[in-house]
Amino acid sequence: MRTALASLGALALLGAGAAWWVTAPDPISAAELSGISGDATRGEILFAAAGCASCHVAPDTPAADAPVLSGGQRFVTQFGTFVAPNISPSPQGVGNWTDADLINAVMRGVSPEGQHYYPAFPWNAYNKADVQDIADLVAYLRTLPPSAAESLPHEIPFPFNIRRSVGGWKLLFEDRDFVVQGDLTPEQTRGRYLVEALGHCGECHTPRNALGGLRRASWLAGAPDPAGDGHNPNITPAGLKWTEAQIVAMLQSGFTPEFDVVGGEMAEVVANTSQLSDEDRRAMAAYLKIVTPVDSPAPKPGTGDSSAEEAG
């Protein structure tokens, strides 16, 4: 009996050690980042493309040329409430972080202390970005006004508050490959990069499974709002019937072909895409036209769905 119990104990320890090992963070190595330095001027447009201010500016803060990334916005989900942190260049924010710390946070979801970040932070899209682009974005972030606001803790119940479990989530659902593959034109390739990586459009417009992983087979086919406050529309060609020119116009002005204007979170998106070049907006439209058409099921009554034509 003692031998059996000892064997079981050894197996349990071995299993726990293996689980700890496979769920460890996977940062980009120092060698891969060697020699990379950021360009703040170039980083400004990348900052807009990535939509950083949309989440990290404090709630009800007026728009500004130099946003203060003090955090505080709350994002309610089925797993708990996530609170955007202060990422301004202050000691309370990320002012004491190295460039490598910031690049790993953005692209690998790993904190300077070696903890996993929850996928509410869209590192699972940013992981497809070019390292140089993220270095440029980091350089621009360091030029923004500092904030002394303390980052507020997430409100996550057990067992989701176990950070190490995010390592298991990454094993199951992290994907560093683009969804749309094949022989793409340079314009479509650029659009894929803007939509799938920097713009992280799939984070809102793709349905998720019970554990919060993206259902990539239904890429951009529409999804319930995580807060239960409506439905993000289907923007595959099966749901979004606009021409490329109409998509480009909406991304620049927010006006739809029906002489309506986008609202809610999509208005924040347009505030970012309006800062891109005409070429980049055309690239995004060209990409959306080659996404596999997927019919999305009708949302449940009372979810406040908006069609693609209404919400963009």
Rank of each mutant, 00 (worst) to 15 (best):
I36H: 12
V94L: 01
G239E: 10
V270I: 09
R163Q: 07
T77W: 00
D130Y: 15
T81M: 01
M107D: 00
A31E: 15
Y118F: 12
P122W: 05
L288C: 04
F158N: 13
R164T: 14
E279K: 10
Q252F: 06
L11M: 14
A283H: 01
C55I: 14
T273A: 01
E310T: 04
A238C: 10
P301R: 14
L141C: 03
E265A: 10
L240V: 14
C201W: 02
F121W: 13
R108V: 02
R142Q: 02
A24Q: 14
D229Y: 09
R192T: 10
P85W: 00
P233F: 05
R163D: 08
S277A: 13
E44V: 03
S37M: 06
A58P: 07
N234E: 11
A238L: 09
M266A: 12
M250V: 08
L211R: 15
L276Y: 06
G199H: 10
A311S: 05
P299F: 06
Y118W: 12
G9K: 13
D280Q: 10
E258P: 05
A120D: 05
K170I: 08
V294D: 00
D280Y: 06
S70Q: 13
I290R: 04
A58M: 07
G35C: 08
A30W: 12
T3Y: 14
S70P: 05
T81Y: 03
A238S: 14
V166W: 00
E196R: 07
T41A: 08
T3D: 12
S34P: 08
T41C: 03
A63G: 06
V261A: 04
C204W: 03
I28D: 00
S29A: 15
T3R: 15
K300D: 12
A267D: 12
A100N: 14
F75T: 14
G191H: 02
T273D: 08
A298P: 11
L141D: 03
A58S: 12
A238E: 13
I156E: 00
R208T: 07
P159W: 12
F47A: 02
